[in-house]
Amino acid sequence: MRKITVIGSMNMDLVANVDHMPKVGETIIGKSFEEIPGGKGANQAVAIARLGGQVHMIGKLGDDGFGKTLLEGLTKDKICVEGVKIETNTPSGVALITVSEEGDNSIIVVPGANFTLNKEDIDKNIQIIKESDFLVLQLEVPLDTVKYSLKCAKELGVYTVLNPAPAQKLDDMIIKNIDLLIPNETELEILTGIEINNEEDVLRASKNLIEKGVKSLIVTLGSKGSMYIDKKGFKKFQAHKVKAIDTTAAGDSFIGGVCVCLSEGKTIEEAIRYGSRVGALTVTKKGAQRSLPYKEEIEALKED
C-alpha cells in the first residue's frame, strides 16, 4: 500500500433539507437542519481512509468549535493529521448546503481558515509530500498554493491528482503538472471554454487539456457514468444504477476510490470501476463524510 497525501479544505457543512430548491427571492420552510463534517479535501481524505488507504492530510482549521470537531473526525478515521494546523483568530471553513427531495444540492462555501494555507505551509510539510506516492488536490484553498504544491510534487516525482472544483480557469503552469485531472462536465467546460453538450464535446475539451500538458483525465458524467481520456484514446464506463438520496460528496468518494485502487497497483480501468461503486453507494445516504462508505460495504456491493 503506497501513501497518499491530500492537500485541501476542511469545512463544517450546514445542511438544510427542503422539498424543492428556492427560486430567487423565494423563502421556503426547511424540513431539517444538520451540521456535518465536510470540505472537499477532508471528504477525499476520509473516503481514502475508509477504503483502506494510507492517507495524510495537509490543511488549515480555525481555532473554533467547528475546527475541534473536524480535527477529531479526521483522527477518528485514522488519517494522519500532522500536516493540519490551527490558524488563530480565524474561523474554520463552512459550506451552506441545500438538499432537495430529489437528491439535488446547491452549495455555498465560505473558506475561512482554508484560504490561509500558503506556500510556507507547504514547505513546512514538504517531507510528508516527499514520502508520498500520490498527491491529491482540489480548488477550495488558494490557487497559488495549489500551483506551488503541484510544482513541488512533480519535482519530487510524486503522482499528482487534481479535482478542479470549484471550477475556475487554470494557467498552463498548473495544467502541465497534473498527471490525472478529474473534472465533471461543468468543470471541464469552465476549464476549456468549450461548451459541453455531448460525448464529442467532452473528447474535444479533454484533448485541449492534454495538448497543454495534462497526462490523463477522468470526466465524471453523473448518471451517465464517466470517460477516461489520454493520448492513446478514450474509454467509457457505465454508472451503477441507484436511487439517489443526496449527491453531496459523490465526486469526492469517486476520487477516493480511484486513488486507493491506483495506490494498490490496480489499472486505471479497475480504479474507475471501483470508484463508480463507491460513488454509487455514497449517494444512497445523506450528508458528506457521514455518507462515505467503508471498504467492507463496497465489497458487499460488488458481490450483489
Rank of each mutant, 00 (worst) to 15 (best):
T5S: 09
H20K: 15
H20R: 13
K23C: 09
K23E: 10
G25L: 07
T27R: 06
K31G: 11
F33Q: 06
E34S: 15
E35N: 11
I36L: 08
I36S: 06
G41S: 06
N43L: 01
A49W: 02
G52R: 02
M57F: 13
M57L: 07
L61N: 12
F66C: 00
E72V: 03
L74S: 08
T75L: 15
T75I: 15
K85T: 15
T90Q: 13
V94R: 00
V109D: 03
K124L: 10
K130N: 12
K130T: 08
S132P: 02
D133I: 07
F134G: 06
F134K: 01
V141I: 15
L143S: 08
V146F: 00
S149M: 08
V158G: 10
D171Y: 10
D172A: 13
M173V: 13
I174T: 06
I175H: 02
N177A: 06
I178D: 01
I182F: 08
E185Q: 15
L188V: 01
E189T: 12
G193W: 04
V202Q: 01
K207D: 13
G213M: 10
S216H: 09
L221V: 05
K224W: 14
M227K: 13
M227T: 15
I229P: 01
K232P: 08
K235C: 04
K241Q: 10
I245P: 05
T247R: 02
T248N: 05
A250C: 10
A250Y: 04
V258T: 06
V260E: 06
E264S: 08
E264H: 09
E270M: 01
I272Y: 07
R277C: 15
V278M: 05
T282P: 14
V283Y: 04
V283T: 07
G287R: 00
Q289M: 14
Y294A: 08
L301F: 15
D304V: 12
